[in-house]
């Protein structure tokens, strides 16, 4: 399984990457939406994207819209991991094509439980 972690905070990228690689994911990182688009274009398909909302260059919501425009990425599950916690924002992200939503702060359990909900394997 391959995952792309997109967050402007290096600390958060490290924490999420660590959580995913410890359950067998091969993880790539991007610091904002634009970089994520470049990584996506240059690599094999990803199974999962964890995406922050507020980022420079291109934000996570725009990134989700961008990814969902391209049917090539239909099998990529997208989960927002963000401090945006208004109900309206959750609705907006789901409507744009995000599959799941985690509100920061998060723990390992939360991330793993959400992955299971999306049908992804979570075995250490």
């Amino acid at each position: 399984m391959r995952a792309l972690v997109v967050d402007d905070s290096k600390a958060i990228r490290r924490i999420l990457s660590q959580m995913l690689s410890s359950i067998g994911f091969e993880v790539s990182e991007a610091a904002h939406g634009k970089e994520a688009v470049e990584v996506l274009a240059a690599s094999d398909p990803f199974d999962l994207g964890l995406i922050d909302w507020n980022m420079p260059e291109m934000n996570g919501f725009e990134l989700v819209c961008e990814i969902r425009k391209n049917s090539k990425y239909d099998n990529m599950r997208l989960m927002m991991v963000t401090t945006e916690t208004e109900m309206s924002q959750v609705v907006k992200a789901l409507e744009a094509g995000a599959n799941e939503y985690v509100m920061k702060p998060f723990t390992k359990e939360m991330i793993y439980e959400k992955l299971s909900l999306m049908g992804l394997p979570v075995s250490p």
Partner: peptide, 20 residues
């Protein structure tokens, strides 16, 4: 709490059955 709804609850159901 936010921590509790973050655990195991599909976002789609949060939107449908909860209010802030």
């Amino acid at each position: 709490s936010q921590l509790e709804v973050n655990r195991g609850l599909p976002a789609m159901l949060l939107v449908k059955f909860f209010e802030r």
